[in-house]
């Protein structure tokens, strides 16, 4: 067990040190979602039907999901940087199990995503929402799962790429539509039928719905419709396993 724990710890802590020591990254990570939330909630306040809830409050968990999504996925840029800087070759020739590379990146991405999300939650009092502790706890648990899953997606793509610019381009192409069509930005009910099909094919829709249900539990805001909790959990778990196992195979093969 130690054979995988210590290398995983080593690579995980190293990624966190990088994050904390890059002041601009920390400021951007906290500041950007705040600005997006303020402007979007002000701009779309009267345009979007958020099921009777205040749009700023409806959007709040969606912004948290956005934070987790971007933080988790973009943390895996470190895979490309590690390869380019030569650091990865030292890890690959060490006795560290290959699985420790996957675990450490997933844990680092999740930790960064959770840190940023929790910091953003400080703004909760400004939404007028009163959440239950149970809801907050469940939300953090789902965010952790989201971090692990999406870091897996980022890892899978970054492992095969050599350019950070290329990674940015591909991930933005993938992530922004995924987030917009996740139900975080607007409820899927009432959208065009073709858009509804795409939304239902988007795995992030199931994760976001699950998160919204946990987040709003006991707050008075109801998340009507959408997939059941059981279906959401099943999609979530299947996606995590698929990404984790594929990442593991990829790393072991190289």
């Amino acid at each position: 067990m130690t054979a995988i724990l210590l290398p995983t710890y080593s690579l995980w802590i190293r990624d966190l040190k990088h994050f904390i020591r890059q002041r601009s990254r920390v400021i951007g990570a906290v500041g950007q979602p705040f600005v997006i939330w303020i402007f979007l909630s002000a701009g779309f306040k009267n345009s979007v039907n958020a099921g009777g809830a205040d749009y700023g409050a409806y959007l709040f968990p969606g912004i948290i999901m956005l934070i987790a999504l971007f933080a988790a996925i973009f943390s895996t840029i470190s895979v490309i940087e590690d390869r380019k800087s030569g650091f990865l070759q030292g890890v690959l020739t060490s006795p560290a199990p290959r699985a420790s590379i996957v675990w450490s990146k997933m844990l680092a991405g999740t930790t960064i995503a959770l840190l940023q999300s929790v910091v953003f939650m400080v703004l909760l009092p400004f939404t007028g929402l009163s959440l239950s502790w149970e809801g907050i706890g469940l939300s953090i648990l789902i965010l952790a799962g989201t971090g692990m899953t999406l870091t897996g997606l980022g890892f899978l793509i970054s492992w095969s790429m050599s350019s950070t610019q290329g990674f940015h381009a591909i991930m933005n192409l993938l992530l922004i539509p995924m987030w917009i069509l996740s139900g975080a930005f607007f409820p899927p009910e009432g959208t065009a039928s073709w858009l509804g099909v795409i939304i239902h094919l988007n795995p992030l829709y199931y994760i976001t719905t699950l998160f919204q249900k946990a987040f709003f539990a006991g707050s008075g805001v109801s998340v009507a419709g959408g997939p059941s909790v059981a279906v959401s959990i099943a999609v979530f778990a299947a996606l995590f396993l698929l990404l984790f196992i594929t990442s593991l195979r990829l790393v072991r093969k190289s």
């Binding site: 054979a3 690579l11 802590i13 006795p95």
Partner: peptide, 15 residues
């Protein structure tokens, strides 16, 4: 990272 941190993290990879 510092010189020591590099050595520290490398040693962890070797358990």
């Amino acid at each position: 990272l510092t010189v020591f941190e590099n050595l520290y993290h490398h040693a962890l990879l070797y358990g």
